[in-house]
Amino acid sequence: MILPDPQATLALGVRLAELVRPGDVITLSGSLGAGKTSIARGLLAALGLAGEAPSPSFAIVQPYAPPEVRIPVLHVDLYRIETPREIDELGIDEEAADGVLIVEWPERAPGFWPDALALALASEPDGGRRLTAHVPAAWKARWPF
Results as ranks from 00 to 15, higher is better:
residue 55 S to K: 05
residue 96 A to Q: 07
residue 28 L to E: 12
residue 96 A to E: 05
residue 5 D to H: 14
residue 95 E to F: 10
residue 13 G to V: 10
residue 137 A to H: 12
residue 47 L to Y: 09
residue 15 R to H: 01
residue 95 E to Y: 11
residue 12 L to P: 01
residue 11 A to S: 08
residue 63 P to K: 11
residue 145 F to I: 00
residue 51 G to N: 07
residue 21 R to A: 00
residue 78 L to T: 04
residue 78 L to V: 02
residue 61 V to C: 02
residue 130 R to V: 11
residue 114 P to M: 11
residue 145 F to K: 02
residue 89 E to A: 13
residue 125 P to Y: 13
residue 11 A to P: 04
residue 60 I to C: 02
residue 126 D to M: 07
residue 65 A to S: 14
residue 1 M to C: 00
residue 88 D to F: 12
residue 4 P to C: 01
residue 47 L to A: 03
residue 135 V to T: 08
residue 135 V to I: 14
residue 101 L to W: 09
residue 107 E to R: 00
residue 69 V to S: 05
residue 45 A to T: 15
residue 105 W to P: 04
residue 61 V to Y: 01
residue 52 E to N: 07
residue 8 A to Y: 12
residue 31 S to L: 15
residue 94 E to C: 05
residue 47 L to W: 07
residue 113 W to A: 03
residue 41 R to Q: 15
residue 131 L to N: 02
residue 68 E to L: 11
residue 51 G to V: 06
residue 4 P to E: 04
residue 128 G to N: 01
residue 143 W to C: 03
residue 104 E to Y: 03
residue 111 G to H: 02
residue 85 R to W: 14
residue 142 R to I: 06
residue 97 A to I: 08
residue 86 E to G: 00
residue 67 P to S: 06
residue 125 P to C: 09
residue 120 A to Y: 09
residue 14 V to W: 12
residue 80 R to Q: 05
residue 137 A to P: 04
residue 9 T to D: 07
residue 38 S to N: 08
residue 88 D to N: 03
residue 14 V to P: 02
residue 41 R to H: 13
residue 102 I to G: 08
residue 35 G to V: 10
residue 43 L to A: 07
residue 14 V to M: 14
residue 57 S to E: 12
residue 20 V to E: 04
